[in-house]
């Protein structure tokens, strides 16, 4: 926990995002339902949930594009539309942000730059940064999804904001692009920016984010550290005599259990296990860190609330305004 003394202002550090009891109904359909979570300054937070969970609707409310039915969403205690120079505080790239097909990407940025009093030099700098300086001089009509995502990122960064809000930025990127994005977000995070990045796939962001906010059917399912999702570290090792190795590990203070034809040890210290096996004279056929099956975990988290109508402890103070539940499940 990064303790911030409440008396000092947070200028310099990224800003904090606070969502309180946020609700949006479209007619009788509740897209976002009493959602509360916060995003800590200077961290990368993954905003996760399956398609239709309400991520985009939540982010659009946070950005003043959709009017909440109830609750509030603030950045540094202010609604987006109350921030004096919003693009300098918050940079955002939303899903389905589009470009006029007849305008060049560069001119798209120049339009935004004009609205914020930013010069063309900064526009070109950002295009350079996201790697599309030449392509951005062509009309946007022919851009690939990857180009659009990069242009969207450049637009978000124009005002050198403290907060970045990105809706599914990995959509439509090839593996190379996703790797680039990962490094890019890490780089921005090191500058102290607060980053909120949505995705419908946990694996897409698992290596990037510090924290997660998981929603389903418009409700909070889980908020916490990414490391908590992973659970305790485990190592898988295979050898000829599992019991002998388990005994040797116990002597070295490492508990373990047999799973199929392998031993699962409660440590992430591969070297220690190798050394113990060597000393015990046991051959090692396989030695690797066990990864939590996050995909399965994510699936379980987001499916779970569908099946158990309204009794999941993860969703705080839910009330019975609507009987609305997702139909799938």
């Amino acid at each position: 926990m990064t303790a911030t003394t409440t008396t000092t202002d947070r200028t310099g550090a990224g800003a904090r995002i606070e969502v309180r009891d946020l609700t949006k109904r479209f007619g009788s359909f509740t897209a976002v339902d009493q959602l509360s979570f916060s995003v800590e300054p200077g961290r990368i937070t993954g905003f996760l949930g399956p398609n239709g969970a309400g991520k985009t609707t939540t982010l659009r409310m946070l950005l003043g594009l959709i009017r909440p039915t109830g609750g509030s969403a603030t950045i540094e205690g202010q609604r987006y539309q109350d921030i004096a120079s919003p693009m300098r505080m918050v940079g955002s790239a939303l899903e389905a942000t589009n470009f006029h097909p007849g305008r060049t990407g560069r001119d798209h940025l120049r339009v935004l730059a004009a609205a914020t009093g930013i010069g063309d030099a900064r526009v070109d700098e950002m295009l350079e940064l996201v790697g599309i300086p030449a392509a951005a001089r062509k009309r946007a009509g022919g851009y690939s999804m990857g180009m659009r995502q990069r242009l969207g990122l450049a637009a978000a960064l124009l005002g050198d904001p403290k907060v970045l809000i990105l809706d599914e930025p990995a959509n439509g990127l090839d593996p190379e692009g996703i790797r680039w994005l990962r490094g890019f977000l890490r780089h921005l995070s090191r500058q102290g920016k607060t980053i909120l990045v949505s995705s419908h796939m946990l694996q897409e962001v698992e290596q990037t984010v510090d924290d997660v906010v998981i929603i389903n059917n418009g409700r909070l399912v889980k908020q916490g550290r990414m490391s908590e999702l992973h659970g305790d570290a485990k190592t898988i090792v295979r050898t000829t005599d599992l019991d002998a190795l388990a005994g040797a590990l116990r002597v070295a203070d490492v508990t373990s259990e047999t799973q199929d034809d392998a031993l699962v040890a409660a440590t992430d210290d591969l070297r220690l296990i190798g050394d113990v096996a060597l000393r015990a004279g046991l051959p090692v056929y396989e030695l690797r860190a066990a990864t939590t099956d996050l995909e399965a975990l994510f699936f379980q988290l987001t499916e779970g609330t569908n099946r158990n109508l309204g009794d999941e402890s993860a969703a705080p103070e839910r009330d019975a305004i609507t009987g609305q539940e997702g139909a799938n499940g």
């Binding site: 003043g64 987006y80 539309q81 921030i83 919003p86 939303l94 942000t97 589009n98 097909p101």
Partner: peptide
């Protein structure tokens, strides 16, 4: 109309959120 059609209204309002 072209802002609705090409959905550029989103970035317009992100830059100038006071409608």
């Amino acid at each position: 109309g072209s802002e609705y059609r090409h959905k550029t209204i989103t970035s317009t309002l992100l830059a100038v959120p006071r409608r």
